[in-house]
């Protein structure tokens, strides 16, 4: 990446950060509109920056751009939408867009697993909980961000730092360096869940072919400790949740005696 490109990237991230800060719920209407405009211009800037590298090589880059734009737009809406239900639904949109990005990177298993786990289970539970909690309308806490400036600063500085390091990622290619968004997407894959196509790993395996088999093989060979720890963590969380909600009914405390049979209903006059 040329230094001019990197500088422009940082500027775009700054613009995006300002946009998100302005658009956070609780602000003034004019500020939120300004945030929307800033955010759109930041996305457009990314598009212009990436356009030179993407087009001309492959038609599928068009899909990539559309999906990436949808994902970024959705992510911005998750943060800035004042209604929690809509936030959760935009989260679903982000998950779907990112899942399709993964499918485009030939990581079908990860993509569909993301949909099943996130969109199909976790976010449904979110929506469920929000619906239950919002019976009497939105609470005042939902109307504003808690630490808007700090959160935005930390988030976007981290993102910029990550992108500036994209060139040093394992398994990078020139396409990844030139397309920061793709690197981001790839990074999201590499973070937490091991990437399928790490150099020298999957390609050398005799399994070949099936994406799922490769993921499975990696999970149970190289990353088996991480997998077990993750499983243990979930189990602990499960036990903790049960321990939190379980109401212990003491056995020896006598229950209030039921009224004698003849008395049941006697206090209620018939019609």
């Amino acid at each position: 990446m040329s230094s001019v490109t990197v500088a422009m990237l940082y500027m775009l991230f700054a613009l995006g950060g300002v946009a998100v800060y302005l658009a956070l719920p609780g602000g003034q209407r004019s500020a939120r509109i300004a945030g929307l405009i800033f955010g759109l211009s930041a996305i457009a800037g990314f598009a212009v920056l990436a356009a030179g590298h993407l087009f001309g090589e492959d038609v599928s880059a068009v899909y990539f751009c559309i999906l990436a734009a949808v994902a970024i737009f959705g992510a911005g809406k998750v943060i800035t939408h004042p209604k929690p239900v809509y936030s959760a639904l935009y989260f679903v949109l982000v998950v779907l867009a990112v899942a399709f990005l993964m499918v485009m990177q030939e990581a079908e298993f990860l993509g569909i697993a993301l949909i099943i786990v996130y969109a199909g289970a976790i976010l449904v539970t979110y929506v469920f909980v929000i619906m239950l909690a919002q019976q009497s309308g939105a609470s005042a806490v939902d109307g504003r961000a808690r630490e808007p400036l700090l959160a935005v600063l930390v988030g976007f500085v981290t993102m910029a730092a990550v992108v500036s390091q994209a060139g040093h990622l394992p398994g990078n290619s020139t396409a990844m360096v030139d397309a920061p968004d793709a690197a981001l997407a790839r990074l999201a894959v590499a973070d937490g869940i091991p990437a399928v196509d790490e150099p020298g790993e999957a390609d050398d395996e005799p399994l070949g072919g099936s994406n799922t088999a490769q993921v499975g093989f990696l999970l149970f060979s190289q990353y088996v400790v991480a997998l077990e720890i993750a499983g243990l963590l979930l189990l602990l969380a499960l036990i903790g949740a049960v321990a939190l909600v379980m109401k212990r009914v003491p056995r020896d405390v006598p229950v209030a005696p039921a009224p004698p049979l003849g008395e049941i209903g006697k206090e209620v006059p018939p019609f």
């Binding site: 049979l261 003849g262 049941i264 209903g265 006697k266």
Partner: peptide, 10 residues
């Protein structure tokens, strides 16, 4: 009033 003998315990 519900009489005792009218109550049927099922």
């Amino acid at each position: 009033m519900i009489k005792d003998e009218d109550i049927v315990v099922v």
